[in-house]
């Protein structure tokens, strides 16, 4: 296990290094100016401003400087949020995004899981059809539609929950529900299929024969095995939700990463784009590692050994 971990961590760093290099060179070829007032700047001023951000140096020099700073954990300063270190920006913004994404995955998985399990247990009844219908709805309707409808009816018309902002738990409820539609749909679909398959296996028949209760069979024996494929998709899904949803963050005015990242891309804020990409990549490789470890815990048949096939 220890050897396996060491190897994986080494691979993680190689991956991150490659991603860091790739984004750096991509930044050099994306078109457009990083200066917001470019139409008002004289050529002399452009020279001066490029020098300030080190953009006047040859690309290899910039690359080495960038890697050197990166090794020290310095991601540079943002162009649009002037003089603010990128790490500060990301740390502040990651909190709300991560909380929202985590809540959405958590809530969505539990609801989806229950929907899927009950649909499987009551296969081809109205429970099943109802759950499937909900899952299709959740997957096919974009979450900003739910968000907009909830904001207007629950927030403005009924006044039950705050319309927008991010100032406490009650503010997180509507965005969480809106964002959880997709995980609900995914979890429900996966669970239904897997449960049906697992429920048909011999050991479940044995458990039934032994007189185990309906509930025991479903949640103790079947669920654990049915969970494995779900975990595979949940890992990356958690990351994509935790690193910010542009639309939901905009609609509910949540100070998160997604919105900041898209804005950075639009205005060519190179340091923020590179920093955020690296952060996403980092979270991704970490979560993939965790998922792999989780497999072993949930299903002892999957063994983690030093890479031997």
């Amino acid at each position: 296990m220890g050897k396996y971990l060491a190897k994986r961590v080494l691979y993680m760093f190689i991956t991150l290094f490659l991603i860091a290099s790739l984004t750096f060179f991509l930044m050099k070829i994306i078109p457009g100016t990083p200066f917001a007032s470019a139409n008002k700047l004289s050529p002399q001023q452009v020279e001066i401003m490029k020098a300030k951000y080190g953009l006047d140096k040859p690309v290899p020099v910039q690359y080495v400087t960038y890697l050197g700073k990166l090794a020290k954990g310095d991601l540079g300063i943002s162009f649009q949020f002037n003089n603010t270190p990128v790490t500060d920006l990301m740390i502040k913004r990651l909190g709300p995004s991560a909380q929202l994404g985590f809540q959405a995955v958590f809530f969505g998985t539990i609801v989806g899981l229950l929907l899927g399990v009950f649909a499987a247990l009551r296969q081809n009844t109205w429970v099943d059809y109802g759950a499937t219908f909900l899952a299709v709805l959740g997957k096919s309707i974009p979450n900003f539609v739910f968000a907009g409808l909830m904001q207007y009816y629950i927030g403005v018309k009924l006044g039950l929950l705050p319309v927008l902002f991010w100032k406490g738990f009650e503010y997180t409820i509507m965005p969480t529900i809106a964002l959880s539609m997709f995980p609900i749909a995914i979890a429900a679909r996966f669970m239904r299929t897997e449960m049906i398959e697992v429920l048909g296996t011999d050991y479940i028949t044995l458990a039934k024969a032994k007189g185990a209760s309906f509930f025991e069979i479903a949640f103790k024996h079947a669920l654990r095995n049915a969970l494995i494929p779900l975990i595979t998709v949940l890992g990356p899904l958690t990351i994509s939700l935790m690193t910010g949803s542009l639309v939901i963050e905009q609609i509910f005015a949540i100070p998160g990463l997604g919105e900041q990242f898209v804005k950075a891309v639009n205005v060519n804020d190179y340091p923020v784009i590179m920093g955020t990409t690296l952060l996403f990549a980092f979270l991704f490789v970490v979560v993939i590692l965790i998922v792999d470890i989780l497999y072993g815990i949930i299903d002892p048949r999957i063994r983690l050994s030093g890479g031997s096939k």
């Binding site: 078109p31 457009g32 100016t33 990083p34 200066f35 470019a38 139409n39 639009n266 205005v267 060519n268």
Partner: peptide, 10 residues
Amino acid sequence: PFAVRLERDN
């Protein structure tokens, strides 16, 4: 995007 338009104007 705006940033590209400014550069191409330049």
